[in-house]
Amino acid sequence: MLDDNKFYGFTNDEIFGSIMQNKRFCKAIIQAALPDVNVVSVESIDAQKELGTKSDKSSKSVRLDIAVKDQAGNFYDVEVQVNNNHDIGPRMRYYQSSMDRDTLDRGEPYTSLSRTYLIFLCAFDPFGRKKLRYSFHLYDDEDKSIQLQNNAENIIINSKGSGSYDANLLNLQKLMNDDKIESTGVFKEIQTQIQEYNDDPKRRNLMRTAELRMKEETAVAEKRGVEKGIELGTKQEARRKDQNTVKVLTATIQDLRPEINESDLFKQIKRSVGPDFDLSESDIREIIHQNLK
């Protein structure tokens, strides 16, 4: 059941996508996440940009929330993460690698890779250190003054964190938490725009429809996951039973005929267990070998 009075804030997919389509808003949010970087004018913005592996169409594709290029050729990916699935590290690694593959064509030197900034706006603290902003680069383990210059930076903004005095970053945090922004400026404009989206019946209907569709997709995915888990559990249980069967037969035959070799023992077990046995021949041979040591 959906709440008719629900407020759709900045981290809502539809709201976030709409806000980030505005180049001035988009630049302000990226600049807040990257206070030490001079973000030049935004040239292009792609919402829900899908990246795949050019050389392998069977690889897992990635759909970026907001992919941005500036006039200097730098590439920014801004992602909203509402739920903590405890996979932030591997997820950022895969997104980064997908971005790199998408920006480098066959035959181009690695030095042609664009400078990339991967920004995750998280509604949770993935590390429990209460920092508002986490910034990651590659350094030598023993000497942090040695940095691997790979032109890639990974940023996590933790909306539940603290410890910053940067006004823009604090306003971004308020935006993520739906807290009121008192000061005038671009972040106040963004918040006003979000309120206008919520007050627009047509846009609210679109957001409600999208929310309902997402709930339905989540329910279907969870059902499939449960079914797959049950199926996997059944197969694992059957496999354990098959392994125990081989061990028992091995010990029994060995007791009856102590001089039997592994080859003859394998043939007798194959005849004993029948065609519905789940283990492969190599599995059976390995179990026999372990039990005859």
Results as ranks from 00 to 15, higher is better:
2 L>Y: 09
4 D>I: 00
4 D>E: 12
6 K>Y: 02
7 F>L: 01
8 Y>Q: 05
9 G>V: 01
20 M>S: 00
24 R>V: 13
32 A>V: 06
37 V>W: 03
37 V>M: 02
40 V>M: 04
42 V>L: 02
42 V>N: 03
47 A>H: 05
48 Q>G: 06
49 K>H: 10
54 K>S: 12
56 D>S: 13
57 K>T: 09
57 K>F: 03
59 S>G: 07
59 S>D: 14
59 S>F: 13
59 S>L: 11
60 K>H: 11
60 K>N: 11
60 K>L: 10
62 V>Y: 11
63 R>M: 09
64 L>D: 13
67 A>Y: 12
72 A>Y: 11
73 G>L: 03
76 Y>H: 00
76 Y>F: 14
86 H>C: 12
90 P>R: 02
96 Q>C: 12
96 Q>A: 13
99 M>H: 01
100 D>I: 05
101 R>W: 12
101 R>M: 15
104 L>V: 14
106 R>V: 15
109 P>D: 04
111 T>P: 10
112 S>Q: 12
113 L>G: 02
114 S>R: 03
115 R>M: 07
125 D>E: 03
126 P>E: 00
126 P>W: 02
127 F>M: 08
138 L>G: 08
140 D>C: 15
144 K>C: 08
144 K>S: 14
145 S>L: 08
146 I>E: 05
146 I>C: 11
150 N>K: 00
150 N>P: 13
152 A>D: 14
153 E>Y: 10
157 I>T: 13
160 K>G: 08
164 S>V: 13
169 L>S: 11
170 L>Q: 14
171 N>V: 02
175 L>Y: 06
175 L>P: 13
176 M>V: 06
185 G>R: 01
185 G>Y: 06
191 Q>R: 00
194 I>V: 08
194 I>C: 03
195 Q>I: 01
198 N>E: 10
199 D>N: 10
202 K>H: 09
205 N>H: 02
206 L>W: 07
210 A>S: 13
210 A>F: 09
211 E>S: 09
213 R>Q: 10
216 E>W: 07
218 T>R: 04
219 A>N: 10
224 R>M: 15
225 G>N: 06
225 G>S: 06
226 V>W: 14
229 G>H: 13
231 E>R: 06
233 G>H: 13
234 T>A: 07
237 E>C: 03
240 R>E: 15
240 R>D: 15
248 V>Q: 10
249 L>G: 09
250 T>F: 03
251 A>K: 14
257 R>K: 10
258 P>K: 05
260 I>D: 11
261 N>A: 02
263 S>I: 00
266 F>N: 01
268 Q>N: 03
268 Q>G: 01
270 K>H: 09
273 V>K: 00
275 P>N: 08
276 D>G: 09
278 D>C: 15
284 I>E: 00
285 R>N: 04
287 I>F: 09
287 I>C: 01
288 I>N: 01
289 H>S: 15
290 Q>M: 09
290 Q>Y: 13
290 Q>S: 12
291 N>Q: 08
